[in-house]
Design a protein around this nucleic acid. Structure first.
Length: 503
RNA sequence: GCCCCCAUCGUCUAGAGGCCUAGGACGCCACCCUUUCAAGGUGGAGAUCAGGGGUUCGAAUCCCCUUGGGGGCACCA
């Protein structure tokens, strides 16, 4: 039995897509589970659309998810790894040319001089005739003289691969037995453009041969293309790898997940505060289940449980609510240090945004955030959630809407009275030591003495010192704010109520 | 249009002929906890297993048909 070698072969024509990430994950899990090799190959032959920026996004995304490749191209100063390179298709052009020439010499492929206009006309005619679109074979048996004429006229030919007749069958690890008649393949396919660069179906196969790929694990959208690949493998005289076609990840309307209808860039999720552990966990559960009722898994736990045989056949809708829940689960599992490190940039951003909006702010540091961990970690569905939670602590000139200060069922006058008395109680209690429990006891006593609902009093104070109606626990928040600043904010709120017209 | 694939609660899924009057999770609702918001706990609604035929003593599980959905058919990958 030969070595297990699998690959992820993204094309840098866009940022790392959810679907690519999931395919990469399943390849990775399979490789690690089987003690095989996980290979990264960049399919950059679409020069017009490929960019270095996308390439970096893809590599960084895979790295972020923890899907390290055993073999792959050089990136960001790191050297290429592996003995089957180059791992970037544009660096393999000689290899493709050589292989194409061989197919040409063996008459398994031929030069085609049809113009785009002719091809287009063919397609239109076929459509009108209710025929599936296919190449009509105009150039498949050109005489030497005819070819010479075309060459003389300066027509640059493409190379077409002879598809031939018959039925191609294969046993897909997740789909089972599949048979497709070559008639459904669209005729002889182009493997080299007129400008000499090779096309996808050709490059994947040749690369998979050269890199000795044992299992091709990819999205179901390639299932119909697989016969073409099998034919190509045969023509190349190479062994045919195993295939495993993964179910598609779907938009809520059950169509193939697309940028148009869903957020598909992995980097965007990262920027919104989703953490890699949760993302990997979530992706793994799209089209695969362990068979037990567990559902929180680390990458290593996934490796230990993964098998292609348990991969589903039906597509899976990307459910963001579930991702968010998992993210919260994973955030709560992080240590304080890890959470602080990951969440601090989000907090800093949120504070900076308020600064940019004209407020006077102080940039939070790791110590600040660390102190807030106990009151914040249970409340964060995403890392970015930390901003809404505690940004007010870093604003010096907090501005509050007077109306927001008044609890439901209270009016301005009673709110002013309550805040004035609360300010006094807080000032007195805090003189000795400023602690949550003591503050709570004193303020509850105040509320009881005056016949106020404690919740109403607390809400008035909350809004006065935070500007928000939803915050971490009030007394911890007051402590985090500090004695002086708490009193300053209470005073500012009272002035606001005094100044504003009675409401 | 042609070819291929798929089909269990709204969603992710368990289920490999009897353990299923179909289990879990997300979401939703209620209650508990509670100063707000969360988190957590308890309970609930929610799938006649797409429909119809078979096979079998017995079918969500096997077979066929229908319906529905999806994917593929480029000098994109």
């Amino acid at each position: 039995m030969s070595a297990i070698r699998v690959r992820i072969a993204p094309s840098p024509t866009g940022p790392l897509h959810i679907g690519t990430a999931r395919t990469a994950l399943f390849n990775y899990l399979f490789a690690k589970r089987m003690g095989g090799t996980f290979i990264l190959r960049l399919e950059d032959t679409d020069e017009a659309r490929s960019t270095l920026e996308y390439e970096r996004d893809i590599l960084q995304g895979l790295h972020w998810l923890g899907l390290e490749w055993d073999e792959g191209p050089e990136v960001a100063g790191l050297p290429a790894r592996g003995a089957f390179g180059p791992y970037r298709q544009m660096e393999r052009l000689d290899r493709y040319r050589e292989a194409a020439d061989k197919l040409l010499a063996e008459d398994k492929a031929y030069h085609c001089y049809c113009t785009p206009e002719e091809l287009d006309a063919d397609r239109k005619a076929q459509e009108a005739d209710h025929q599936p679109p296919h190449y009509v074979g105009r150039c498949s048996h050109l005489s030497a003289a005819a070819r010479a004429d075309k060459e003389k006229a300066g027509v640059k030919p493409v190379v077409r691969f002879r598809v031939g007749e018959g039925v191609v069958a294969f046993d897909d690890i997740v789909r089972g037995h599949v048979e497709i008649d070559t008639k459904a393949l669209g005729g002889d396919l182009i493997i080299v453009r007129s400008n000499g660069t090779p096309l996808y179906h050709f490059t994947v196969c040749l690369d998979d041969v050269d890199m000795q790929i044992s299992h091709v694990i990819r999205g179901e959208d390639h299932l119909s293309n697989t016969p073409k690949h099998i034919l190509l493998f045969r023509a190349l005289g190479a062994p045919i790898p195993e295939f495993a076609h993964l179910p598609l990840i779907l938009n809520p309307d059950r169509t193939k997940m697309s940028k148009r209808k869903s957020q598909t860039a992995v980097a965007d999720y990262r920027a919104q505060g989703y953490i890699a552990e949760a993302f990997v966990n979530f992706l793994a559960l799209l089209g695969w289940a362990s068979g037990t009722e567990e559902e929180i898994f680390t990458l290593d736990e996934l490796i230990a449980r993964f098998s292609l045989e348990k991969v589903h056949q039906g597509g899976a809708v990307f459910d963001k609510e579930r991702l968010e829940w998992l993210n919260g689960q994973w955030i709560r599992r992080l240590s304080d240090d890890e959470l602080v490190e990951r969440a601090l940039p989000f907090l800093a951003n949120a504070v900076a945004a308020r600064g940019a909006a004209g407020e006077s702010v102080r940039t939070p540091n790791a110590e600040d955030l660390r102190a807030l961990m106990p009151i914040v970690r249970e409340r964060m569905p995403t890392l970015s959630g930390v901003g809404d939670m505690v940004d007010f602590l870093f604003v010096d000139d907090l501005r509050v809407e007077p109306d927001a200060l008044v609890p439901k069922k209270w009016d301005r006058a009673s709110t002013l009275t309550a805040l004035t008395e609360a300010r006094h109680v807080i000032a007195e209690t805090g003189k000795v030591s400023f602690e949550a429990e003591e503050l709570e006891a004193a303020l509850r006593q105040l509320a009881e003495g005056r016949g106020w609902k404690a919740g109403d009093l607390f809400m008035a104070i909350r809004v006065a010192v935070t500007g928000k109606t939803a915050t971490p626990p009030l007394f911890d928040t007051l402590v985090a704010l500090g004695y002086e600043r708490a009193l300053v904010r209470l005073d500012a709120a009272r002035e606001l109520l005094e100044a504003a017209p009675a409401g």
